[in-house]
Amino acid sequence: MHKSYREPIKLEQASVISQHHFDGEQHILRLHSPRCAQAAKAGQFVHLTVGPELALRRPISIMLADARQGYIDLLYKVVGSGTRILSQRRPGDSISLLGPVGKPFSVSQGTRLPLLIGGGVGMPPMIFLAHELRQHKQLQPFVILGSEVAFPFDLEPSQHLVDGLPDGVIACMPLLQQWGIPSRLASRQGFAGCHDGFVTDLARNWLDTLTADSLKQVELFSCGPEPMLQAVAQLAADYDLPCQLSLEEYMACAVGGCAGCTVAVTSQQQTRMQRVCVDGPVFAARQIYPDLFTTRQVNQ
């Protein structure tokens, strides 16, 4: 059973530095929140009061935290009244922020080739994780991002060669390229340079090029819509890979007090409801989709 993550949670009055708007009602919000920025780790989220109109906070995953300059970046999409109100916040506005919350990703011992797969508003934790992984020289991460609306960044051709990918799949995320991390993009919307299909297609293409020894060094990390997470879990089961998924659920308290955000988690043949906020949001794929893993013994 997962241990709840017990680091302190800060409550601070963050101020909006900037809010950039992108196609598909996507927004990147930069908040001055030095204490949260100092403590944040990839996979964690913040719980925000979006405005005076709605009292209940909304959980938004962290895309980047700059401890030195004291800001965090959040990428989110308008999906309801809370995110709509959040999208109307302007520079200088003050937002109550609870965070960072949640158990972060943790790279397993023996992993050399982290494969990060993010879909839609599941991209931010993957970007944050990539940023953390670049500090570890022995790791060679590869990032695959998918979106069915325009990506919230300009695409550019990748300078990193990645084996096994279909011809013409050359577009990447510039920020990751700047960090020296190879990335590729997938969408069924026909964006130039992107794979016309699913993120998991690209992942399979790449995994199929690896030797048995290299495969043992791969670990999957993923965040995105539920069908995509299930497909990633299937991938982990098929290739016998450890896999960590970041989940989301409606939340009230986000500190573990209300048990409002639980998911069914199976461990040692026992299924229990665990809180996404503090027992997660990161869980082992085999604990969330145990049926996919029944035929294999997968290392965690």
């Binding site: 302190p8 308290c253 573990g256 007090g257 503090v278």
Partner: peptide
């Protein structure tokens, strides 16, 4: 004990 993690 859950809320005691929140600073303050």
């Amino acid at each position: 004990e859950e809320y005691t993690r929140v600073e303050g």
